[in-house]
Design a protein around this nucleic acid. Structure first.
Lengths: 245, 245
DNA sequence: CGGTCCTTTGACACAGGTCAAGTAATGTGG
DNA sequence: CCACATTACTTGACCTGTGTCAAAGGACCG
């Protein structure tokens, strides 16, 4: 039985895949012609809107990759596990982000909802068939993949070469920028994930994340409005810390 | 003046972009129909073969991304720098690999040759124009990007959660697998890069890389044939170490 | 051959991990 | 709505893996 509650059977529902201009604006994409109305219809006709609750699994690493998803609302974490349970979160996904793209038979990572989330779900076979006919769509996916690749390289720099302090600050700025891209002010920022999730994203322990945050607070660089909400007091200084000055 | 020596002006030269079957086989790609002869011609007609010597810069992060490259022979490192000079190598590239793909105006990383290298060079504008007409090509690029994304996530796992020992072993196996994909035996392996490069790839210091190698040697898991050539004595055990057992 | 660069090895330091305890937030059943 | 259990977060004391600094081989090169 399905782990999803099907919210809607396509009709008149939209996806950010079909609304390139929104997403492009939100993500700073360069080239992406909007789909025509009939192209949008073909896309939405193969799509379902599904809901998942926090901590619920969307898919597991290595299970058959039958669907591709697009975040319509909410937030998601994607991660990989080592044999002994060590975990690396490879990304936090928000409105408009994609998950499940792979050229293999199986998913390359696991995905779980952080908050109550709605996803646009596309059967992979049908989407791939559609790609052959809608080159614009393929172009968008390539753009998205390039974008994610660049983000992945930034993250490698962070994990390989930055100190705990630099990692935490980079993370805060990342969330701030993401929120700006989605039309919010970017300050204060909301953390939909736990400290453990932050730690597993930054390659640190919960304790180090916690200590680093209190240290930044003590230095007057941030303010902890509450556990899940942080205000950036000196964004300029923080920017400097994140980029290694 | 150009930093490249132009080796050949297209005529009858091939690129792995035009020979999908080779590359697919070499890379385990699932779906990639070969280009027809005339499609190949259109591709090779916009391409130049250029040569670079070891330590020579192919392009620098943040410079205008006017070309896309495909490794025809040799090996390349791509990396990012922090303000204070800390370096993270985000990939080593070999025959058939791509570099320079970005959806931004500028490159996301710097690239340098490790060994004497020949590259197929495509003017970005012309290639993008061609992509609109050859959807097969775009499909291949999307496949490649997905593949690289998966590799990037593995690398995040390595950098965020693995010990020095696990990182070095993972790296040796990575090189071994790459060499197998290119038709070699995969053992012993050849390291075209310096210890410093390995360190910057694994998020370690030169000293730690060196110490870890001598330790693995002392335990009889590898043999250092010479500084640049390593034989994997117990591949099975090494595999276990790399995956966290 | 003498110099330069790369690699290895050693001694020591420290950032961040581990273990343990305390406190605050959240959820649950009565 | 309140006791109580559970989970999440913070803080402290201590430890260890890896970094830092220094020096000694080796390889390569003019």
């Amino acid at each position: 039985m399905s782990r999803f509650s099907v919210v809607h059977q396509a009709e008149r529902h939209v996806t950010h895949l079909a609304h390139p201009c929104d997403t492009c604006a939100a993500r700073d994409y360069s080239s992406c012609a909007p789909l025509h109305a009939d192209e949008q219809n073909r896309l939405t006709s193969i799509m379902q809107v599904v809901g998942v609750m926090p901590h619920q699994v969307i898919f597991d690493e290595a299970e058959p990759a039958d669907h591709v998803f697009n975040v319509k609302e909410g937030s998601v974490k994607i991660f990989k596990l080592l044999a002994d349970g060590r975990r690396q979160i490879t990304g936090f996904l928000f409105l408009g982000d994609f998950l499940g793209l792979t050229h293999n038979d199986s998913y390359a990572y696991s995905a779980e909802a952080l908050t109550p989330t709605q996803l646009c779900r596309f059967p992979r076979r049908k989407l791939e068939a559609l790609l052959d006919e809608l080159p614009k769509l393929e172009q968008r996916l390539l753009n998205i993949a390039s974008h994610e690749l660049a983000a992945a390289q930034d993250q490698m720099m962070l994990l390989g070469r930055k100190s705990a302090r630099e990692r935490v600050v980079s993370f805060l700025l990342l969330l701030s920028n993401a929120s700006i891209r989605h039309g919010q002010s970017g300050n204060p920022i909301v953390l939909p994930m736990s400290r453990a999730d932050i730690a597993d994203y930054l390659g640190l322990t919960v304790e180090t994340v916690s200590r680093t945050l209190t240290q930044l607070k003590a230095q007057g660089l941030i303010k902890l409005l509450d556990e899940k909400q942080i205000s950036l007091v000196k964004p300029q200084t923080l920017q400097g810390i994140a980029t290694g000055f």
